[in-house]
Each structure stands twice: as C-alpha cells, then as structure tokens.
C-alpha cells in the first residue's frame, strides 16, 4: 500500500481555485485577478516550453486568461483539477500560436527539455499531482527512451511529426508509427493501473 502525503497548502490551493473559478463564471473580476495571481506563473511556465519567444508567450498567456474568463462556466471539477484544466488551455493556446506563427525550435536549442527525470518541478505542483504524474511517469519509463522523448517533445513543446522526424533523423511515417505505438502502450499501462 502506498500513501501519498499532500501538503496542507496544496489542498487549500485546489479548493480555493475551484471556488474562484465558480466566482469567475459569474463575472467576478476580483476573483479573476486572484486566479491570475495564483496561477499565472505556472501557466507562463507551461507556455514558455512551447514558445520561447517572450512576446508570443505573453500573447498566449493573455489568450489563455481570456479563455479562462469565457469558459469558467463550463469548468467541471469532476473532470479535472483546476490546474489541469487551466494548464491544458495554456498549452493549447501556446501550440495554436506556435503553429500559426510557424515558430520553430532549432534542433540545437538549449531549451530542449525532453525528459521527465531532469525536471525539478515546484514542490507545490509536484505534490499536487503526485499520484497522477507518478503513474504517468512510470508508464512513460516503460517506453524506449527515444519514444519517451518524442511524446514529451510533441505534448509539452508542440513538435510536429515533421519536426520530430528531423530531430530524430527518422522518416515521418516511422515517427507516426512510433508515436501511435507509444500512445497505445501508454493507454494500456495507465488503464491497467487505474
């Protein structure tokens, strides 16, 4: 049996965010400002991995908060934690902008960040998602390292198949096959441990 210890403050943050999102859904600007103060740094971190250029990242953060404001009504705590919901919006806005602006990371970029092991996340976020992240990390660890990197580069940094093909010196069709096999393996692993 595994026990997960969650810092008290994290639980508070999660329930505070739920409460705040409910207020934002009613058009409460003070609550919105409080959400901004609580999560903008973490969302900007998510965006920065996709968009290293500052002005694009700032635009993506703005779009993200506009979206949070507009969609707070549809937020459902039964489906995702407030942070997972907002981080997904931020990631999607960033990738949207990355594709539109055709910003491409060069293969030599020092910003590349394709392993889980190298991460030293905020203690806060680490604890908050400890269970889910650990399960996902364990399943990712079951993939060959090249495939782990491909999945992470695509999901966290917005790499397309073509960019992955270039970086890993593989044909695009091979990348597609490897990504699909990885996803199916991840699904089987995650669903099996649920």
């Amino acid at each position: 049996m595994v026990m997960t210890f969650m810092p008290f403050a994290v639980g508070i943050m999660d329930s505070e965010l739920r409460q705040l999102l409910a207020q934002v859904a009613q058009g409460d600007r003070t609550a919105f400002a409080r959400v901004y103060d609580l999560v903008s740094g973490r969302l900007f971190g998510v965006i920065g991995r996709v968009l290293p250029r500052a002005e694009l990242a700032e635009d993506a953060l703005q779009e993200t908060f506009v979206r949070i404001w507009q969609r707070a009504k549809s937020y459902d705590p039964a489906i995702a934690s407030p942070m997972a919901w907002m981080a997904t919006i931020a990631r999607n806005q960033a990738i949207d902008l990355r594709r539109r602006s055709a910003e491409r990371l060069s293969a030599s970029s020092s910003e590349l960040d394709e392993t889980l092991a190298d991460e030293s996340p905020d203690p806060e976020s680490q604890a908050e998602q400890a269970g889910e992240l650990r399960r996902l990390s364990d399943c990712m660890a079951g993939l060959p390292s090249e495939r782990q990197q491909m999945v992470l580069l695509a999901y966290r940094q917005g790499f397309t198949r073509e960019e992955l093909a270039e970086r890993f010196k593989r044909p695009v069709t091979t990348v597609k096959t490897l990504l699909r096999r990885s996803l199916i393996a991840l699904k089987e692993c995650l669903d099996g441990t649920r």
Partner: peptide, 11 residues
C-alpha cells in the same frame, strides 16, 4: 499531468 510539472516562470 505532464503539464503540471512545469516550473513556474513569473510573467
């Protein structure tokens, strides 16, 4: 969950 390990960056 992969997103939630991101380091915070102050805008």
């Amino acid at each position: 969950p992969l997103l939630l390990a991101a380091r915070a960056v102050t805008p």
